[in-house]
């Protein structure tokens, strides 16, 4: 039962208030893209065993979307940030790196 920090409400929220939107920072491909790129955008997922960046919505709360960095093995959460951020904040990446030596950094 996850307990995630909503950066808009500035408080921890129970999983029952949240809904997950999957991998964060996907780049939408429109009709000008190739079928292959469109496939990658729509279906292909990193699905890392380790640290992932994902989208959540505080659906039974403020209704806002936000991003988190979480480890899919231990469920350790490293932080939440705005859904508008195109990439994970540098400070967050630094925090992850400091606790996980094997973290390869943000890879698209």
């Amino acid at each position: 039962m996850l307990y995630l920090f909503c950066p808009i409400c500035r408080r921890d929220c129970d999983e029952t208030e949240l809904s997950c939107g999957g991998q964060a920072h996907l780049i939408r491909r429109d009709h000008t893209s190739s079928d292959k790129d469109f496939y990658r955008y729509l279906y292909e997922r990193k699905n890392d065993k380790g640290i992932i960046f994902e989208r959540w919505r505080h659906v039974y709360g403020c209704g806002k979307w936000f991003h988190t960095a979480r480890c899919t093995i231990t469920n350790q959460v490293f932080g939440s940030y705005s859904a508008k951020d195109a990439l994970p904040p540098k400070s967050l990446l630094a925090k992850i790196r400091s606790s996980r030596v094997d973290f390869k950094g943000w890879i698209k």
Partner: peptide
Amino acid sequence: GHSSVLSELAGFRLPIES
């Protein structure tokens, strides 16, 4: 559930979430 881990080793990604 661990298919993505293996495919990563083989150098490609899958349309899969675990």
